[in-house]
Amino acid sequence: MDKSISPAKSGTMYGVLFGVIMVLEFVIMYVIGMKSLVNTSVGTIVNIANYLVLPLIFIFLGCNHYKKNINNGFISFSECLKTGVSITVLAGLIYAIFSVIFNFIFPDFINEMLDITRSQMIAQNPNITAKELEMGLGMVKKFMNPLIVFPVTLVMYSLIGLIYSLIVGAIVKNEKPSSL
């Protein structure tokens, strides 16, 4: 058994891969055109993938990798938690850094998203007042601020990682038998 590799460190590759996949999804959607994808199933599929499917897959793969390749077929519940949370935190960190950099490189992106949001708000509620519209757009703009996006993304993916690690840990754990 190689004790030099911690459960958290063993998930690094999976966290980086997960983060890169989320960045690539974003770039592809941006290149295709966000406006053409609004109110389509593509955005919903990407969200389901980023918040449900991909975290579960990468946490499962990371825990199994640690269990089979590093820890001789054993993994405790706490090691699953460490592995899973490290994977999602690293992926969230990569995505948050990319998001902040992207918004600095393309400052018009925020305005494009505000225009899309304005159109959606008006389409959903044609009787919305100008004051309500501006108040709603003000909240959206606050949440697009890099000082808010960065920590919120990290916290969100940490919680996702914790919840999914609990589920995966309950499935894949295989405690080492204690020898007397």
Score class of each variant (00 low, 15 high):
residue 117 T to Y: 06
residue 51 Y to H: 08
residue 65 H to G: 10
residue 130 A to L: 13
residue 92 G to L: 11
residue 69 N to Y: 13
residue 103 N to H: 03
residue 74 F to L: 08
residue 69 N to A: 14
residue 69 N to R: 08
residue 102 F to Y: 13
residue 107 P to L: 05
residue 60 F to I: 12
residue 100 V to L: 04
residue 98 F to R: 05
residue 48 I to T: 12
residue 92 G to C: 11
residue 116 I to R: 11
residue 63 C to R: 00
residue 97 I to P: 02
residue 113 M to P: 03
residue 88 T to M: 08
residue 87 I to N: 07
residue 118 R to S: 11
residue 68 K to A: 12
residue 118 R to A: 09
residue 108 D to C: 02
residue 56 L to Q: 00
residue 92 G to H: 12
residue 56 L to E: 04
residue 121 M to G: 02
residue 97 I to M: 04
residue 55 P to Y: 04
residue 133 L to W: 06
residue 113 M to R: 13
residue 90 L to A: 03
residue 134 E to C: 10
residue 91 A to G: 15
residue 81 L to S: 09
residue 92 G to V: 09
residue 62 G to K: 02
residue 64 N to W: 01
residue 115 D to G: 14
residue 52 L to A: 07
residue 85 V to M: 14
residue 132 E to G: 15
residue 51 Y to E: 03
residue 104 F to M: 08
residue 93 L to C: 09
residue 105 I to T: 15
residue 85 V to H: 07
residue 84 G to H: 08
residue 80 C to R: 01
residue 116 I to F: 14
residue 95 Y to G: 09
residue 62 G to N: 03
residue 107 P to D: 01
residue 131 K to S: 08
residue 68 K to C: 09
residue 116 I to Q: 14
residue 117 T to W: 00
residue 75 I to M: 07
residue 117 T to L: 02
residue 70 I to T: 10
residue 104 F to P: 02
residue 52 L to E: 01
residue 131 K to T: 12
residue 86 S to Y: 08
residue 72 N to I: 10
residue 84 G to T: 11
residue 72 N to C: 03
residue 57 I to T: 02
residue 72 N to L: 14
residue 115 D to K: 15
residue 110 I to N: 10
residue 50 N to L: 02
residue 81 L to I: 15
residue 120 Q to C: 04
residue 103 N to C: 06
residue 98 F to M: 03
residue 122 I to K: 13
residue 134 E to M: 13
residue 120 Q to G: 06
residue 107 P to T: 05
residue 125 N to P: 00
residue 118 R to P: 00
residue 68 K to W: 10
residue 111 N to L: 11
residue 115 D to S: 15
residue 100 V to P: 00
residue 49 A to D: 11
residue 67 K to W: 05
residue 84 G to Q: 10
residue 122 I to Q: 11
residue 64 N to Q: 12
residue 95 Y to L: 15
residue 54 L to I: 01
residue 94 I to E: 11
residue 109 F to P: 01
residue 50 N to S: 14
residue 134 E to K: 05
residue 63 C to Y: 01
residue 84 G to A: 13
residue 110 I to H: 06
residue 98 F to T: 04
residue 74 F to I: 09
residue 114 L to A: 05
residue 96 A to W: 09
residue 87 I to S: 05
residue 89 V to P: 03
residue 91 A to M: 06
residue 97 I to C: 04
residue 82 K to M: 09
residue 74 F to R: 10
residue 60 F to M: 12
residue 64 N to H: 09
residue 83 T to E: 06
residue 84 G to L: 13
residue 64 N to F: 00
residue 97 I to N: 02
residue 129 T to C: 03
residue 105 I to G: 15
residue 71 N to E: 15
residue 79 E to Y: 04
residue 56 L to A: 13
residue 124 Q to F: 08
residue 121 M to N: 09
residue 70 I to P: 00
residue 79 E to N: 07
residue 82 K to A: 10
residue 110 I to R: 12
residue 66 Y to F: 15
residue 94 I to D: 13
residue 87 I to G: 03
residue 110 I to E: 07
residue 100 V to F: 05
residue 104 F to L: 09
residue 58 F to G: 05
residue 87 I to C: 06
residue 58 F to T: 08
residue 102 F to C: 10
residue 50 N to K: 13
residue 66 Y to C: 03
residue 82 K to I: 05
residue 103 N to W: 00
residue 103 N to F: 06
residue 66 Y to N: 07
residue 96 A to E: 01
